[in-house]
Each structure stands twice: as C-alpha cells, then as structure tokens.
Design a protein around this nucleic acid. Structure first.
Length: 113
DNA sequence: GCATTGACTCTAG
DNA sequence: CCTAGAGCCAATG
C-alpha cells in the first residue's frame, strides 16, 4: 500500500488537463499551476508525452505560452492543430490562436469588452 | 550521483 | 516578429 504516491503527480496533471472544456485551450504553465506545481510546466509536457494513445485526456488542448503548438518530432504536432480546428478553434496565418477567445479560464472570464 | 535533455516561460535586444 | 540567453525542475542516461 503506500506506493501510489508515485503515480499521484502525473495523475493530478492529467486530472487538470481533463478539466479543460472542449473548444478551449490551456498553457503548460497554467496546467502546472492549477495542478499545484507552479514551476513544473515542463513536467506537464513530459507527462503528456508518455500518455497512452487510448487515454481520454485532451492533450491537444495544451499549448505553450505563445499560443502555438509546441514543436516536436513526429506528426503529432500537426495532429494537434487538426484536432483543435475540429473543436472550432481557428489559427492565424502564423499558426497562432487567440488567447482572448480560446484560453480556458477557471473563473474570472466575465470581463470581455 | 552528476550530466544531459526537454510537448516550458520570461526578459532583452 | 524573431533570436538568444537564463531560470526552472523532473526524467533519463
């Protein structure tokens, strides 16, 4: 018993990612902070990288602080954009999305001009 | 146990 | 807008 604390950290990150609603995105740093690890943005990416294919985690809703899909090997980068577009998110010509429209906010999202 | 790496972020130029 | 450097922390070798 007591060896579940090892899996608890990634589980917490995954749980937070799973809370991101469809059609919204979140940043690595944002997920890390909400999960309780304010300086572990990189670890969020590390967890998503090891994520099994059949998981229900919306990993594609996680982008970097620039509002772009993080660069990496494989087609997964392109796949992420396709998945987001499938949820109604639009990218600019530079492959960037609008935080003002798509960034997930836990609460204070009422201020919009 | 140290050195390298990385799906990150911030500041300067 | 883009590049470079530094800071950060866990995973990996």
């Amino acid at each position: 018993m007591a060896n579940d604390s090892l899996s608890e950290v990634p589980a917490r990150i995954i749980a937070t990612v799973s809370r991101v609603p469809r059609g919204k995105v979140a940043t690595y740093g944002q997920i890390a902070r909400l999960a309780g690890f304010p300086r572990n943005a990189r670890q969020v990416g590390a967890v998503l990288k090891q994520l099994p294919e059949d998981s229900n985690v919306p990993w594609h809703r996680i982008v970097n602080a620039s509002g772009r899909v993080s660069r990496r090997n494989g087609q997964a980068q392109h796949l992420q954009r396709v998945l987001l577009e499938g949820e109604g998110i639009e990218f600019s010509d530079s492959g960037r999305l609008s935080f003002a429209r798509y960034l997930w906010r836990k609460a204070s999202d009422a201020n919009l001009s």
